[in-house]
Design a binder for these strands. Structure first.
Lengths: 309, 309
DNA sequence: ACTCCGATGTTGACGGAGTCAATATTCTCG
DNA sequence: CGAGAATATTGACTCCGTCAACATCGGAGT
């Protein structure tokens, strides 16, 4: 009932409409081709599989068995396909392209590639990358049905700035924090790099579904034995899949491995999801003071975890 | 001939294949519908236009006139559509849905929205936003054929970090600059905000096709009458469309308007595209020193533009 | 006023797409 | 061994998609 949902449905349907319209234009020039779209799809499956069976093609393309049967019959009559009985299974008919069939497929491939190539070339580079990125994304969305799993990795180019950008956007949208906050994050990541010592510091980026979905930084504190956990965040979309816990656990484990006696962190009470993560990891509040920050009245908290136990 | 091009073609074709497969699943449940996909498209056009003419629908959907004529005939027989002659043009037949036709359309809409809604709801939020963003992008790509035009705007949440992220990624890829550079940019944007004075400083983001494609910053220099131009960059995809010039011109004009006597900038010689922009805007090199930065041997340059003339 | 041309709309013909039902055959598993 | 599932084919039917032929109307020129 949310209007967001209705809006999403409308977006996807608008996409369907335009794309249905463009489908012919996008894949091939079927005017000058001896194959229909459906035939071309069957031919593709025949060419990219070894000794397939008709039912395999039916499943791959979601077509009716009757239609595939007739298409294959026509292909056989045109001398593009030969069938032989499977040695393993008397009911299976192993299909394979003849030389003519492979030649026809190659010609179709060349033709199609050229058509798509022309379409791509005609687009402005900006639009081209936008189209290709979007195409890749949609493919990925439908590729596997398993829910996306998050993984941790180290810093790559763009990560430092992206952490500031994403935290800036998210906390501006969710809590109305101003640019002070984003600039503070930028300063922290810059300082992280400036003072970086591999035996004292570390950072992790959480990635899921090809996107950055969270971060956490480990830096040495003011006193020798104390480390600081900083810049923990999780993308709204990726909440509830254990990303925050993964990040905190990686950070705590590394702090322990580097020989720190304690791990401190600063946060504000309004970040309740983060609070739960810290609690669960064994952190305890050691200080709490009201404070005005980022254009809001907030309550600062300092948490600490004893690593010496 | 580039392998990048072949790769792009393959990406788009892979997308076409999966999407052709999903098309039925994505838009509606046509099994339980009294309309075929083609009929539903015609019905949609009838419902969302006022007194259309058959030829209009033909153009909108890219269908054959014969097919539309027959579809409309069936609709008329089913009591969904009525035609009346146009008062303006004797050959035109104004089409309109009957009450039954509107009811059928409403039912189809409800059905389709529910189907698409279920599909969206079943996706993990991460995948959902990814799909919807991609759908929006592809729609936008095909929406207008005019080449994308760049516009300038002020800073919004996420921009500070994004400038660092994009410059980090681009200069790492193009010149092999390390994280030093990205951290330096992060520090500069943080400092920009920390010392921000609206009567002395400004910043612009160039935007094209819904994306950030460049930036430029204006800050006061060490001496009172001197301003500094900083962090100019243009996305590789957006080069050659005058984005850089727009940014430089905006910055110079503002520096002049704020009463600065001169505008200085620091750059390195390897950034040849930027050099041309500075030259064109009237900047002159006033200092040049070899330097080791960002893991590379570079030649620093300081350029200056006299604004007092 | 008249003619040509283009746009609109219909109909016939034909092959393929897509769906459903019926049927035959073969393998697998309990 | 028998039941059931998977594989494959065929008939029947409607719609899709394309091409060609044709009728009709309005407007641009001459």
């Amino acid at each position: 009932m949310t209007s967001q949902h209705d809006h999403d449905v409308a977006t996807l349907r608008a996409f369907n409409r335009t794309y249905t319209r463009r489908l012919g234009l996008l894949d091939a020039n079927y005017d000058s081709s001896p194959f229909t779209l459906s035939e071309a799809r069957v031919l593709y499956e025949l060419a990219t599989r070894v000794d397939p069976v008709a039912a395999e093609i039916v499943r791959a393309l979601g077509l009716d068995p009757a239609q595939v049967s007739r298409t294959l019959k026509r292909f056989t009559e045109r001398g593009l396909v030969t069938t032989r009985e499977s040695p393993a299974h008397g009911r299976h008919q192993l299909l394979s392209l003849t030389n003519e069939g492979r030649a026809a497929y190659a010609a179709l491939e060349t033709n199609t590639k050229a058509s798509v190539g022309v379409l791509i070339e005609r687009l402005h580079p900006l639009r081209r990358t936008r189209l290709l990125d979007a195409a890749r994304d949609i493919n990925a969305v439908f590729k596997d049905d398993v829910p996306p799993a998050a993984t941790l990795r180290g810093l790559e180019p763009g990560d430092l700035g992206m952490v500031a950008a994403r935290q800036g956007v998210i906390y501006a949208a969710e809590y109305g924090w101003g640019r002070d906050h984003e600039a503070l994050v930028a300063e922290i990541v810059a300082g992280f790099h400036r003072n970086f010592d591999p035996t004292r510091d570390d950072a992790w980026i959480a990635q899921a579904d090809g996107r950055m979905v969270g971060s956490i930084f480990l830096v040495q504190g003011e006193t020798p034995g104390a480390a600081k956990l900083r810049l923990l965040y999780v993308e709204p979309d990726a909440r509830g899949m254990g990303v925050g816990q993964m990040l905190v656990e990686a950070c705590v484990a590394r702090a322990r491995a580097l020989g720190y006696q304690r791990l401190d962190l600063w946060t504000v009470t309004v970040l309740s999801a983060a609070r739960k993560l810290y609690q669960r990891a064994g952190f305890q509040v050691i200080e709490e003071t009201p404070c005005r920050r980022f254009g809001q009245d907030l309550v600062d908290q300092i948490w600490s975890l004893d690593l010496s136990a």
